[in-house]
Design a protein around this nucleic acid. Structure first.
Lengths: 220, 220
DNA sequence: CGGCGTATGTTAAAATTTTCACATGGGTGA
DNA sequence: TCACCCATGTGAAAATTTTAACATACGCCG
């Protein structure tokens, strides 16, 4: 019921809240209106104690003996995650990944509106991707300022990423989702999360080689 | 020099090894052949002690007072990460994300060869994406078995992901990179990493709402 | 060839995160 | 209304991960 609780909590909690949110949406769609931490955890492969702890950082949302009211918890999570409003986002880079993001309809459903896509390529400029216009990279500055864009998705080659990030921040963007395989250096009041596709595959490769005992375990 | 060291290390270490690898590649390309943990950390926003610790799980690769030989460390990391061989991968789902993955050339450079893409859509079957054929989903089983595919990328809607994953595992795949926004339940000897695009944006939304003091901090 | 500067590898401490265990309180039915 | 069940919320313990600190070893220079 009461919202404010602890002031510090693990970084990983935020990510899990997002998982809870999605799972609850699914339950809600299926007409289920109450769920226990145990049941929710089963769906997500997360321990029930973890779920209760995560939620406890933000408030008391459940009823003892009963579990959580799905709709109520959804509303609260929506609020906590900042999803109770619309966010305007620009994508920089109209290549395959940029295009895939522009076509990713889940963003819209969550209130992330792709306002424009920016690229240097003459052949792409002026076209639309999933209804979103592709504009010249040179207009990025003005567009971000005029439309008060706060979030951006970087989908350009690694070599260009830092320059793009700098430009975005200078124009007023304060949150960046970066697909370029490079660590961009940013002011600390700008949030940047990276999605590193190669790294994920490499981690899988590691686990597989490991399981095949081809690793350092062999040598001494 | 010596390879085998500790047997347990943080899960996050593997991911960082992948970052080190890429940064070293970059240094190597630029003709730099020695690097200190301090310099490498500066490039990646990672503390030098973290780097030394990470590497120490696998062996002694540096020279005191000197740092690390870039080429040598690259070779060792390649070995540790299991990148000293080719991996055959299939993509399931020829939608925007599947297509983007098929077009992601970095995979090939790392030894991840996309052998085929599978989809149900008649209009897509028979075509090629970046030189890789799109085959009927019904052939997935046979193809994976015949070509001894070990890794797969799932890029289908959430509702289909579990069934696809089951089919892949049944056919012999033991590592999965999952783009579907759902937690797939798998046998524990199958490795599965998820890339959750919405979750990342949601985490950003959280951080931004937080910084704007619109969160639980307000209430009591 | 010995001392000096430097950056490693490691050990110990600190910080963070997860898990456990259980007291607590809401709801239900007699 | 009372007793019983159940699942929460939490405080403490365990596990994991990061950071700090430093002794050690390498190479260079005089």
């Amino acid at each position: 019921m009461a919202r404010r609780k602890k002031y510090k909590f693990p970084k990983t909690t935020i990510e899990r809240l997002s998982y809870y949110f999605r799972a609850l949406e699914d339950l809600s769609k299926r007409g289920i209106d109450t769920v226990s931490s145990e049941a929710l955890g089963g769906k997500l492969n997360i321990k029930s104690s973890q779920i209760r702890k995560d939620l406890s950082y933000f408030g008391d949302f459940g009823k003892r003996g009963m579990g959580y009211d799905v709709k109520y918890l959804l509303k609260e999570l929506k609020y906590i995650l900042g999803l109770d409003r619309e966010w305007s986002v620009v994508i920089v880079g109209a290549g395959h990944i940029g295009a895939a993001m522009a076509n990713y309809d889940s963003f819209g459903k969550r209130g992330f509106n792709i306002a424009a896509i920016f690229d240097n390529d003459e052949k792409k400029i002026g076209k639309e991707i999933n209804g979103t216009p592709v504009l010249p990279y040179d207009n990025l500055d003005d567009f971000v300022k005029q439309n008060k864009i706060e979030m951006a998705i970087i989908a350009v080659p690694a070599a260009a990423a830092q320059a793009v990030a700098d430009k975005l921040v200078e124009s007023g963007v304060t949150a960046i989702l970066n697909f370029a395989p490079v660590a961009v250096q940013l002011d600390e009041n700008v949030r940047c999360l990276s999605v590193d596709l190669t790294t994920k595959l490499e981690a899988l490769a590691y686990y597989m080689s490991y399981s095949q005992d081809k690793l350092w375990k062999i040598y001494s």
